[in-house]
Nucleic acid binder design. Sequence first.
RNA 1: GGUCCCAUAGCUCAGUUGGAUAGAGCACAAGUUUUCUAAACUUGCGGCCCUUGGUUCGAAUCCAAGUGGGACUACCA
Length: 596
Amino acid sequence: MHNLSAQLEQLLTESIAGEWQQQLQPVLQNTRPEFKGEFTLVAFPLAKALKLSPDVLCERLGSILITKAPQLVKEYQVVKGFLNISLKPEAWLQYYNFFSDRDNPVYKPANSTGKHIMVEYSSPNTNKPLHLGHVRNNVLGYAVSELLIARGHRVSRVNLVNDRGIHICKSMLAWKLYGQGETPESSGIKGDHLVGKYYVLFDKEYKKQIQELVNTGHEKTWAEQNAPLMLECQSLLRLWEQNDTATRQLWTRMNAWVYEGFKTTYTQLGVTFDTTYYESETYTLGKSCIDTGLAQGVFYKKENGSIAIDLRAEGLDEKIVLRADGTSVYITQDIGTAIERFKAYPDLSQLIYTVGNEQDYHFKVLFHILNRLGYSWAQHCRHLSYGMVELPDGKMKSREGTVVDADDVINEMFETAKSTTEALGKTEQFNADESQQLYKMLGMGALKYFILKVDAVKTMLFDPKESIDFNGNTGPFIQYTHARICSLLKKSTYSHAHKISETVSLNLEPAELQLLRHFHDLEPLLEDAEKDLNPSKVAHYAYELTKSYNRFYQECPVLKESRTEIRQFRLHVSYQTALVLRSVMRILGITLPQRM
RNA sequence: GGUCCCAUAGCUCAGUUGGAUAGAGCACAAGUUUUCUAAACUUGCGGCCCUUGGUUCGAAUCCAAGUGGGACUACCA
């Protein structure tokens, strides 16, 4: 057993059993920085069980620890019911040797757990370009996938593109009516933006028609349903469903423009997929499951002919799963798709949907339905829900044009990185290509970290007027520290091959000890982040480690250190810090530069 | 009406299965470079952890009720 707190906990359990003949499982926590020591036992619960005063118990346990494990425990202090334990530097160095001996302290060997997990994310509509909300989805879905890979699972990243439906017909129709043959080539507009332009145009013209109808004395709801544009749009959808050649050709053509545009954005974001599904190919799935469910009595037919499920026992409501005319609703296809996926991948142990929290209810219903249908894997489906991105004046609304466009944000981040870096004169030694590379890395690092450091469940605020920071708790701060370490290592004759003798540096500097403690905390942190599917914990860890390293860098000379062993140790620790930073940031989809 | 989520410094956010005097960053104020990259470091300022009850040795954390904000609750997706 290498984990030091686990060793201590076991020692404590044994000590209690030996001394008081009771089986108790003490849990240690990290000692707060204002106290001496590294691990703390909170004595109150134990004291109660053993009917002792907390301080007496602490004293007794402390002295037992020293006697039983002199190689491990250096000293202890008792403060008001808390037992603070300091370990011998040798113990820390021993742990450090174990830690640094592995190829990668963050990533477990690929596919080593045998678990196969599918993560769905991105899932864009093909009627408009991506905005900042989509960026959050992509960055989050990618990071969670990468986190699971780091934990040794096999991960399939999948994208389910919403490429059909009434909203797609809107941009198609507007283009037909007003487009005059405009293409990305003829206009120089990126494909997804061009299609989005017609989606917005449709809405504008549609609203005009509604207003005219209202002005001539019609009800608003009637006007909305009977505006000529809407009627035409619906007939276009019918044509699409009937496989009308011209409609399908236009649809294919415009979607191709969008995919070309998305490809660029995805490349910039650095997200990838193993499989891309299209709703045009999956939207009929699920109907047959409805029949089966009906026969099983899971669903029932209502008087008007629609089919529903009663989920009131689960605290939810009745939910329609098939319309009276026999056509699917959205959840029908989700039921079918989930079943298909588990059929296609029988080894699938988990299915994760990265979808905004406005669909919390939807997924609750979906999982209950799958459960009712008797699929045992339903309990392994998870909705990775995340909050909206809001602007200072409220929500983003595509149709009202109050969206922060993904491509714009990416470009702005690039420009900010460029001007900041140039102002600092950092790239004077770089050639043009290297500079571009660096600005991209820094801009995306800042953006991704800005998004991922916030717990996904929370609504997050983005102020376009204030550009994302490059100082403090940011991506570039971590990137900078990494570059510093690389520079240090490059200037030295450091070789990673050698081991650290456990007898050197018996007086660990506080900053050194702090780094070793961070390494010790890494594995539990990753377990925790995996359990919660929470990359913000990884981001937070990276930040804390970076801060600690900067303190170390400030306080402990490395190249200037004359004692060879200590210099070697500090170089070694620096190398490990860089390796850990690189690896945890890789989970977040952020790359770190060698110099900046 | 029903279900769910959120509320911590001026702003953006951390805060572990309940533990010690609630932490960072930004902003503001001051300092640190003959020394390994100052995109750094140090110090100061800043709090009714939304409110009220409850659980207990102990609550930002758990429970209940309330307040404020948001989402969902369609034969939309």
